[in-house]
């Protein structure tokens, strides 16, 4: 075996990518339908389903918090990983810069959502 092999740190990003990919494959379409189409336009579900009190209560419940956090963070990590690889695929091997833009924005968004969710209290 070749000596001096360097262990890849990809598992961290790959695991987040996989988690987000699976979550978005399972519930992504339905979420888009609910939040973007059904509720705003009163199809199937009443418009009031996303009223401020209801959503606040949802985001203050620890389960609801976890769900919102998982969706936003994991979706973004999934997307960041794919976009980073696609940049490489199309010949943009920007290395650190591409890495910072892709994973950096996912990281910032993760922090923001955590901050807001914690700020909403329990």
């Amino acid at each position: 075996m070749k000596s001096g092999l360097k262990r890849s740190n990809a598992p961290i990003f790959w695991a987040l990518f996989g988690g987000g990919g699976m979550l978005s494959a399972l519930v992504g379409p339905m979420l888009v339908f609910i939040t973007g189409i059904a509720i705003p336009f009163g199809l199937l579900l009443p418009e009031g389903a996303m009223s401020y009190p209801k959503m606040l209560a949802f985001a203050q419940n620890w389960l609801g918090k976890a769900f919102v956090f998982a969706v936003i963070a994991l979706f973004l990590w999934h997307a960041a990983h794919r976009i980073f690889h696609t940049l490489h695929d199309v010949g943009i091997h920007a290395g650190v810069a591409a890495r910072l833009i892709c994973y950096g924005s996912a990281f910032v968004a993760t922090l923001v959502s955590a901050y807001v969710l914690l700020g909403l209290g329990f």
């Binding site: 992504g28 969706v71 979706f75 997307a79 968004a109």
Partner: peptide, 10 residues
């Protein structure tokens, strides 16, 4: 698109 949606939610 997954990213766009996540940002919308954010």
């Amino acid at each position: 698109f997954v990213a766009a949606y996540a940002f919308t939610l954010l």
